[in-house]
Nucleic acid binder design. Sequence first.
DNA 1: TATGAATGAGGCTTCATTCAT
DNA 2: AATGAATGAAGCCTCATTCAT
Lengths: 194, 194, 194, 194
Amino acid sequence: MAKDDKRELLLQATLELVAKQGFHGAPCAAIAEHAGVAAGTIYRYFDNKDVLINELYLTLEQKITTALLEGYTLEMPFRERFLHLVKGVLKFFITSPLEFKYMEQFHHSPYGVAFRRDHMLGQTESGGSCSIYSELFTQGVAQQVIKDLPHVLLFDLAFGPIISVARNHILGFIQLDETLIEQIAEACWDSLKR
Amino acid sequence: MAKDDKRELLLQATLELVAKQGFHGAPCAAIAEHAGVAAGTIYRYFDNKDVLINELYLTLEQKITTALLEGYTLEMPFRERFLHLVKGVLKFFITSPLEFKYMEQFHHSPYGVAFRRDHMLGQTESGGSCSIYSELFTQGVAQQVIKDLPHVLLFDLAFGPIISVARNHILGFIQLDETLIEQIAEACWDSLKR
Amino acid sequence: MAKDDKRELLLQATLELVAKQGFHGAPCAAIAEHAGVAAGTIYRYFDNKDVLINELYLTLEQKITTALLEGYTLEMPFRERFLHLVKGVLKFFITSPLEFKYMEQFHHSPYGVAFRRDHMLGQTESGGSCSIYSELFTQGVAQQVIKDLPHVLLFDLAFGPIISVARNHILGFIQLDETLIEQIAEACWDSLKR
Amino acid sequence: MAKDDKRELLLQATLELVAKQGFHGAPCAAIAEHAGVAAGTIYRYFDNKDVLINELYLTLEQKITTALLEGYTLEMPFRERFLHLVKGVLKFFITSPLEFKYMEQFHHSPYGVAFRRDHMLGQTESGGSCSIYSELFTQGVAQQVIKDLPHVLLFDLAFGPIISVARNHILGFIQLDETLIEQIAEACWDSLKR
DNA sequence: TATGAATGAGGCTTCATTCAT
DNA sequence: AATGAATGAAGCCTCATTCAT
C-alpha cells in the first residue's frame, strides 16, 4: 500500500459524500467509514476537517487547470483558444459530475466563504487557471476582437453560462452532446466578440 | 407594535444572518437574538426552522417576480422585453445584495434540495417567473430572432452571466453602473440572438 | 355563565386529555384550548399546573367515595357490604373510563409520587374512602369472617384484582357484564373469607 | 474495563433514576451523569432514548421470566405450580424494588403505550411468561380445579393482588415475610379455586 | 501508524408561566 | 376577569475532535 494511500481514500470519500449529499451529509464519521479508515485517522493526514475540505478543493482546481492546458498553446488563434477553454471547462464538468458538484457545494458553503476571504489577496496569481484567462482577455481586448470590458465581466460572460449549463446537464434537465456543446461555446463567443 | 411585526423581524433577521454568514452562521438562537426576540418566539410564527427558511425564500421569489413584471408588457418588442428581464434581474440583485446572497445559499443547501424535491411538480406553473421566460423563449424561437436551442440552454445563456456578474458585484470584485449593466445585457442578447 | 364555569371546563378538559393521551399529551396550552379558554386563564383558577392536576384527582376520589356510599349502610350484613364495595368500585370504573384512566396515570406520574409524599401523614383519615374499608376490615377480622391479615393486605387482595379487571375491560381485552362482575366479586370474597 | 461496561452502566443508571424519580427525573443528562459518562455516550450504545428505555424493559422482562422458570416444571401438581408462580412473581418484585418500580413506570408512560402498540401482534408467543400462564389456566379450567372464567380475568384475580401487595411492600406500607407471602399466595389460590 | 470509544459544546424544539392589554 | 404573545429553561440529539490502546 502506497504511503499516501489513505490520504487519497479520504479525499475521494469526501468528494463522493459531499457531491452526493452535501456537506450536511458528510460528517467526519461518514467520510472515514466511506474511506474504510477510522475517524481518528483523518487527523493524521489533515489538521482538521476544514483543511481536508480545502485541500480537496485545491486539488480539483489543479485537475481542471491541467485538463484545460492539454492541447492549449499560445500559438493558437485567439478565437480557437477561447473556444478551447470554454468547451474544455464544460466537458470537464460534465464528465466529472462529482467534481462539479463538490466545487459548487464548496463555493456556497462556509468553507468557500472562508476560502475566498483567505485567498482574496493575490487571487489572480494563485497558481490556478486565472492567469490563463487573464492573459487571454488582455490580448483579446488589445487586439479588439472582444468587447472592452473589465476582465471580471468577460469571465462572467464566458463562463457564467457554462456553469449553469453544466449544472443542468448533471441534474438531468438537459442532455448535452457534441453538437450542443459546440453551439453553446459559439454562443459564449457571440457574447464576447466585438 | 403591528400585529405581524415579530414575524417580519424574524424574516429580516434570518435574511441578514444567512446572507452574511450562511446557514451555518444562523442558528435559531442567533436569529432570535438578531430579531430581538426570545428563541421560543420563532415557533409562534413558524412551525419550525425549515418553514421559516422556506417562507423567506418564497417571499423573495415573489419580490423578484413583482419587480420584473413592473413595466413589462407582452406588447413590447421582443428584444426590448428580453433586455427588460435581463437588466431587471441584474438590477434587482445588485440593489438587494442580502436577498441575492440568501437565495444563492438557499439553492445550494439541504433546504434548497428539499424545496426542489417538493416543488418539482408543477414547477413551470408555480406562479413564479418561470412562465415568463418560457413564453418569451417560445416566441423568440418561433420568430427566428433567437437561436433554436432548448429553453433550458437559452435560460442558461441569458441568466448564467447575470448571476455571475451579480455575485462579483456584490462581492466587490466589480462596480457596476448603468453603462456596464447596459453592455452586459447587450452581451447576453448577442449570446442568444441569431 | 356560572361563576366557576371555567374552572369546571378546565377540570373536564384536563380529565379528557390526560385520560386519552397521558400527561405527555396534556400541556397547558392544549388543556386551555380543549376547555375553550386562554392559557393564562388556567392561572386564575389554579396556582399552577400541579394544583390543577391534584385538585382534579381529589375531585375524582370524592366522586368514587360518594358513589360507593350510595346504598351502603353499616346495618348490612358483612359479606353484602364487602360485595357492595367491590362491585361498586368496579362498576364505577367501567362506567367512568376517563376517570379510571386519569387516576391510573396520576398514580404513576411525578404528580402521584409527590401527592403520596405530601399525603403520607394522616393517610387513613384523608376524608376519602379509606376509613370505610378500615372500618369494614376491622369488623371482619374481629368477627372472624375474613382472614386475619394486615388491612393493607386485605385491601390489596380485595381491590388489586378489581383495578386489574377494570383496566382490561376499559382497554377492550374483556367485555364485562353483570354475571361476570358478580363472579369477580365473589372471587374477591373467596380470597378474603375464612 | 469490560467491553460493554458502559452499556451496563447506562442501563443501571436508567433503572435507578427512573425507579426513584420517574421518567420525569431521568433526562439524558442525568442518566449519563449517574452512569459516569458523557451525554453523547448514550448514543454509542443506543439509537436514542426510547431504545434505551425499551431495551431496559425487555431485559427486566427476561429477568422475571428466568426467575419464574427456575424450579418450575410441568410435572408439578397444578396447585403447586400456581403457588410457585404467584410467590415467584411476588418474591422477585420485593427483592427487586427498582425493577418493580421501573416496570410500573414504564407501563404507565408513553413508552409503555408505544411498546404495547408495537408488540401487540404475537403477544402471547413473545417468548415471555404469557404462555406459561396461558398453559396453566387452560389446564386448570379443563381439570375443573379453578373457576371457568376468561384467562384475562383469571390472570387479574391471581396477579392483581400480587402487584398491589408488592407495591405496598416496596413503598413501605407493609413488611412482608415468608409467612405473609405464603398467606397471600394462598388467598390468591382461594380466589381462583373451585 | 491506526483505531474508535468517548467527549461535550451547540443545535432545534417544547412548554409552564408571566404580563401588558 | 380574561387574553394570548412572549419568554427562556431544559430536553434530546449530532458531530468534530481527542487520546488511551
